[in-house]
Every structure is written in C-alpha cells, then in structure tokens.
C-alpha cells in the first residue's frame, strides 16, 4: 500500500472547502486511501485546510476509528462490551489475536447488541461475528 504524499493529498481534498469544518471529512478521505494517518499526511491536511498541524493531530488522534500509527487497510475490532461479552466476544478476540500478526482491537459498544458478538472489519460490521466471517471479509480486502 502506497501512502499519499502532500501533492496527492492536495488533489484528494481539492473539492472540499478550505475551512476547518472540512477537517473530519478530509481525515476520512486520507484514512480510507492510506489505512493510516501519518504525521506527514496530517501536516498536509492541515496545509490544505489552513488548520495548524498540532490541531489536526489533536482531532485525528481523538477518534477510535482513525489510526495514527499502525497501518492496515481493514483493521479488525471486536466489541467486548457488556452484552457481546456474554456471548463469546472475549473468546473471539483471543482466537483472532492468536492467529493474526496484525493487531486486533477490542472495541466499546458497536450498537449491534441484538446479534452478539459484533465486530468491525474495516467499516464492515459483522453481527454475529465469527472467525470464518472475519476471514471471509479480510479475504476480499486488498492488502
């Protein structure tokens, strides 16, 4: 996966109004393109929208779905919150962690308590989630 550079970020964000309110949509665009928000990319987003780089970092690092370090096209998250943990969430998380090299994240409530345990692979929700289900989604994702 090739990361964006300042020039490609400029063009990626070209149609967004050059204002602070474009920040969250801009971060999503870069994150979906790169699977990560690097310091360089955050600086370029700040440049493009005229927002200080430190504040761009402050916003980006606040949100659980953005990664400012690990790079992965489709990060795996397993909900280990109250209801999902009654239905095998921890076991699923442990099993996934045991067989993946990349990190598997524990998430707070994903809002799918009607079909526990829930997981997110990238932005795709699985409920109920299983090892096979997660594998199937990952198989369809470009590395």
């Amino acid at each position: 996966m090739k990361e964006s550079n300042p020039a490609s970020i400029q063009s990626l964000l070209a149609d967004l109004p050059k204002e602070r309110a474009s920040l969250l949509p801009a971060l999503w665009r870069v994150f979906e393109a790169d699977g990560v928000l690097t310091r360089e990319a955050l600086a370029a987003v700040g440049e493009a929208l005229d927002v200080p780089a430190a504040e761009v970092y402050g916003v980006a690092s606040f949100y659980a779905l953005f990664h400012v370090e690990a790079q992965e096209r489709a990060p795996v998250r397993v909900c280990t919150d109250v209801v999902c943990s009654l239905f095998g969430a921890q076991e699923l998380l442990n099993a996934l962690r045991g067989r993946r090299e990349k990190p598997v994240y524990a998430a707070t409530c994903l809002g799918r308590c009607d079909a526990p345990p829930a997981a997110l692979v990238g932005r795709q929700a699985l409920a109920p989630a299983s090892l096979e289900g997660v594998d199937a989604v990952l198989k369809g994702v470009q590395p």
């Binding site: 204002e19 602070r20 309110a21 927002v51 916003v59 606040f62 659980a64 779905l65």
Partner: peptide, 19 residues
C-alpha cells in the same frame, strides 16, 4: 469516527466544526 462523547450535543457540534 468512533467517539462515544461525540453524541453529547455540544461535542457533536464541535465535531462538525472540525474540532
């Protein structure tokens, strides 16, 4: 982008504003 607190109404406004 994944933040429980963003559902609090004034936090939500800040999120829309890019803060």
């Amino acid at each position: 982008a994944g933040a429980y607190i963003a559902g609090e109404e004034t936090a939500l406004l800040n999120s829309i504003e890019g803060r």
